[in-house]
């Protein structure tokens, strides 16, 4: 029996989702005109969480690299923004440049850190973050562990400052999401997803593993750097201990692990969940953190694919077309085996 196959990138459903997403983006862009200051502040935080989650997922989910030192780039992003602003760079230019400094630092760090593997890389990154924190604390401008503030932001009226920070956060978020979306659909993205599924197998069919991992690492540095700069814009104060704290990595791991590691949609879902949990339980302080730890351990051991990974595996859900789908043409009996083949195209 002749069988006909076709490969397509999206289904009619993903196209509908894209249209809905576009409408949502337009609505969010009008935010400052429609929403109260309180909601705007919360949305800025949510945007930053999503940025953190997708950047850590790019590294761990697609690069296969677990880092517990991404706070290095978060802190560098904020620190570079403060330094640049001090040198006279306009503040709303200094902030994205600070994020870019995170990518630059990741590029430099990749030269030696990526030679480490597994757990060595994980803690090696933590050592690097600690070292950078201690070096930054030596800068007289930062005043040791006391910290400093992004004074240039005080020249703006609170309302316009909030709106500008909101738009900047939204722009960075959409830019990074777009870049990741484009990246995953490109040749590099196919390599990334191959490495995610099986690094050795990917290497054996000629995927250039090292450059692909470097790309994921620099992207993650860019995301964390941008998030740090935006957090600085939202909170204005900078203390090295807070920005270089390992809790940022703990949050990233929680969001990605719960949402679904190695999926495009999972980390976004995880960030929204994390944001909701923090809003509801954040006031309980340490018990909230105990809960985060317990849930992280639970997901790592019992549901390592996260919520989205489980949904995807069960229902074949796919909101955004980042992979390929195998479509069976006429002449192929669409029995149970066949439809399971269709669904297993995107996840090992």
């Amino acid at each position: 029996m002749t069988q006909y196959y076709g490969v397509e990138r999206g289904t009619s459903r993903t196209r509908i989702i894209l249209i809905i997403t576009s409408c949502l983006v337009v609505a969010l862009a009008c935010g400052p005109a429609l929403m109260s200051a309180n909601i705007l502040d919360h949305l800025i935080v949510l945007f930053i969480y999503i940025i953190l989650a997708i950047s850590w997922n790019a590294l761990a989910g697609y690069g296969g690299l677990i880092s517990v030192g991404q706070q290095a780039f978060f802190g560098i992003g904020a620190y570079a923004a403060i330094r640049l602003s001090y040198y006279g760079v306009p503040v709303y230019l200094a902030l994205p440049l600070g994020g870019a400094a995170g990518a630059m630092a990741a590029g430099i760090a990749s030269l030696f850190m990526l030679h480490l593997r597994g757990g060595e890389f994980a803690i090696g990154m933590w050592v690097l973050a600690t070292l950078i924190q201690q070096l930054v604390s030596l800068d007289p401008l930062i005043q040791g562990s006391t910290g400093t503030s992004l004074l240039a932001l005080n020249h703006f009226a609170p309302a316009s400052r909030r709106a500008d920070t909101y738009w900047l956060s939204l722009a960075v978020l959409l830019g990074l999401l777009g870049a990741l979306f484009w990246l995953l659909r490109s040749r590099q993205g196919a390599a990334m997803q191959a490495i995610r599924d099986d690094e050795e197998a990917a290497r054996s069919i000629g995927v250039a593993v090292a450059p692909t991992k470097r790309l994921a690492f620099v992207f993650a540095g860019l995301g964390a750097g941008m998030a740090g700069a935006l957090w600085l814009a939202a909170s204005i104060t900078f203390q090295p201990g807070t920005y270089f704290g390992v809790q940022w990595t703990a949050y990233m791991i929680f969001m990605v692990l719960v949402g679904g590691i190695g999926t495009f949609e999972g980390p976004i879902l995880g960030a929204i969940l994390f944001f909701a949990l923090e809003t509801i339980f954040g006031a309980t302080g340490v018990w909230y953190l105990i809960g985060l730890g317990a849930v992280s351990v639970g997901f790592a051991l019992f549901a390592p694919r996260g919520i989205w990974g489980a949904l995807e595996a069960r229902f074949g859900w796919r909101l955004l077309p980042v992979g390929y789908r195998l479509v069976l043409g006429p002449g192929f009996a669409r029995d149970k085996t066949a439809s399971s083949i269709v669904q297993s195209d995107h996840h090992a």
Binding site: G64, L257, I290, S296, A300, L301
Partner: peptide, 27 residues
């Protein structure tokens, strides 16, 4: 349990344990 889940799972699980332990001690 984590050993059978691939190379990333032990790191994620033990990091979660450290988060859990630190905060229980703090509580």
């Amino acid at each position: 349990r984590s050993l059978s889940g691939g190379p990333l799972i032990p790191l994620l699980a033990t990091f979660g344990v450290s988060l859990l332990l630190d905060n229980i001690l703090f509580a």
